[in-house]
Simulated scan of single mutants.
Amino acid sequence: MMLLRGFAKGVPTGHLTDEMDLAYPSVLKRRHRIQEAVQQGERVGLPGGAPKDGLPDPEVEADEMYQNAGEKIRSSSKSG
Rank of each mutant, 00 (worst) to 15 (best):
1 M>G: 12
1 M>F: 07
1 M>H: 12
2 M>F: 12
3 L>Y: 03
3 L>I: 09
3 L>M: 06
3 L>D: 03
6 G>P: 09
6 G>D: 10
7 F>K: 03
9 K>A: 13
10 G>I: 04
12 P>T: 01
12 P>E: 07
13 T>C: 06
13 T>R: 01
14 G>Q: 00
16 L>S: 10
16 L>A: 05
16 L>C: 02
17 T>D: 04
17 T>E: 00
17 T>H: 05
19 E>H: 03
19 E>R: 08
21 D>A: 11
21 D>T: 03
23 A>Y: 02
23 A>K: 10
23 A>R: 01
24 Y>H: 05
25 P>Q: 08
25 P>E: 08
26 S>T: 04
26 S>N: 02
27 V>A: 00
27 V>Y: 00
28 L>W: 15
28 L>A: 12
28 L>V: 10
28 L>S: 14
30 R>Q: 04
31 R>S: 06
32 H>Q: 06
33 R>I: 06
34 I>Y: 00
35 Q>Y: 05
36 E>T: 09
36 E>V: 15
36 E>R: 02
38 V>T: 07
39 Q>I: 08
40 Q>N: 05
40 Q>Y: 08
42 E>G: 02
42 E>I: 01
42 E>R: 15
44 V>H: 12
44 V>C: 06
44 V>F: 14
45 G>C: 14
46 L>D: 13
47 P>C: 11
47 P>D: 08
48 G>T: 02
49 G>I: 05
49 G>Q: 04
49 G>V: 02
50 A>H: 10
51 P>H: 13
51 P>L: 13
52 K>Y: 04
52 K>P: 10
52 K>Q: 07
53 D>Q: 15
54 G>M: 01
54 G>C: 08
55 L>F: 13
55 L>S: 11
55 L>D: 03
56 P>E: 10
56 P>D: 07
58 P>M: 12
59 E>D: 15
60 V>N: 04
60 V>W: 08
61 E>T: 04
61 E>D: 07
61 E>N: 11
62 A>K: 09
63 D>I: 04
65 M>P: 01
65 M>W: 09
66 Y>M: 07
66 Y>A: 14
67 Q>Y: 04
68 N>I: 15
70 G>Q: 02
71 E>K: 11
72 K>I: 12
72 K>P: 04
72 K>A: 11
72 K>S: 15
73 I>G: 03
74 R>L: 15
75 S>Q: 14
75 S>E: 13
78 K>A: 13
78 K>Y: 14
79 S>A: 12
79 S>L: 06
79 S>R: 10
80 G>A: 11
